[in-house]
Structure formats: C-alpha cells, structure tokens
Amino acid sequence: MMLDDILASLFPAGHDVQNADGVVLGSGALRAGGRALVVGIADRTPLGVDDAIRLAAHVLQSITTGNGPILIVVDSDSQRMSKRDELLGLNEFLAHLGKCLIHADRHGRPTIGLLYGHSAAGAFLATALATRVLVGLPGATPAVMDLPSMSKVTKLSVEVLEEKAKSTPVFAPGLANLAQTGAVHAIWDAAVPLVDQLEALLQAIPDSDDRRDLLGKKRGGRSKAYEIAERVRGLALQMR
C-alpha cells in the first residue's frame, strides 16, 4: 500500500499528515475521538542526523502539548551511511529519537509502529522497534541485512543462505520471520479498512511492558531469549 492510501484508510475523518522529502509529520482524527500524532519516514529514505532530530522535536513537542496515541509509519532505508552523519554522532541522534518515543510511550502516549515498506538496521531500531506495538502491513520488507550482503560477511552463497532460511526464521529478511521472533505483534489485513484495525488495537492496547521475548518464544522464533533474560533477572534480584 502507498502512504496516501494508508493514511486515508486509517483516518477517514481526516488528517493533516505531510510527507516532506520522506519525513512524515502530522496528526489524524481518531474515530473514537481525539487525534493521533503521526510521525515517520517514507519513500525508503535513509535516516540521518537531520531527519532524526526533526522527528524527535515533533515527538517531544507533542509530549508537552498533546495527548492520544503516537503512530510511527515506516518505509525507510537503513541509517544514512555517510562520513558526515558518523562525524556528527549519528548513534546519539538515532538513540535520542528512540528515547523520545519510549519516554512518550511510558507516559500515557502509547506508541504504535506501522511498518508498511522497508526498514533496516539503525533506522529500524530508532523508529519501528522503539514502539510498544509494532504492526506490519502485507508487503512490508524489513531486513536487518539483505542476503547478498550477508553472503559477503558469512562467505556463504545466497543459495545456501536461502536454503538455511527455510529451517530458521532467525536471520533471513522478511516480515514473517521478524514476526516469529516477536518483533512484529500483528500483521494487518490490507483488505479490511485500517481504521477498524487501529480502533480495535487501541481498545485493547497492552500495557507498556516489553514482552517481545515471550512472544518470540510462543511463536517458536526465539527459543532461548525469554528464559535466559528471566534467569539473569532472577539472579540479579538475589544480589540486592
């Protein structure tokens, strides 16, 4: 789905969301009343220092002046790969955006990621993966790293990697694989008006505790993460 169609389907009562060179900012009217803040990245734009700080400013301003949920729509490249971005401290800019989203989520502004296109690596961490609930739309193509690049690092052919990917969801790109690890909470139905699915989600929104490891265990995509984290947490508590 294209961003315009998605926004129209999410907010039939109207929205003022603008896409300026891939940076998405605005808000939409919710059917149940009130408005949702909308931020995001479109058109497979890489996320660099300039766009990250704009998005963070918008979220921060909304924390003090607004209310209602925050929707993060994502069709990005990975982080912008350049000398300038790294020179200026891209890690801080990306983390700052993630921190603003997490802070908002923990203070009455539930965050919902809507992954409708691509995303990867640092851009994924700073946006969609920094939300309380991440929803995927059919056709979304998240990838921590694409198979040709992975082939270069692992010294295995793409054919071998594709074969291995059939037995495990843990490394190969794709929405279904990420959903199995617990990163994606739900995949919406593109044939059903998105407003219905958004309102249903908002009415039964989970609390802000991070249960993605438990979800990954239930779905069979991450067999050990939940248990290991719980054991370490328990051992730490014995030290107090």
Partner: peptide, 19 residues
C-alpha cells in the same frame, strides 16, 4: 548476522531496558 533478526530485536529490547 547469523542470527540477525534475534540480534536486532535484542538490541531494541536492551535499549528499552536501559531506559
């Protein structure tokens, strides 16, 4: 990279746990 999806998600979980 051999467990890229699990590793990426682990980092997201750690960021949240730090906060």
């Amino acid at each position: 990279l051999q467990e890229a999806n699990a590793g990426e998600l682990a980092i997201a979980e750690i960021m949240r746990a730090v906060i």
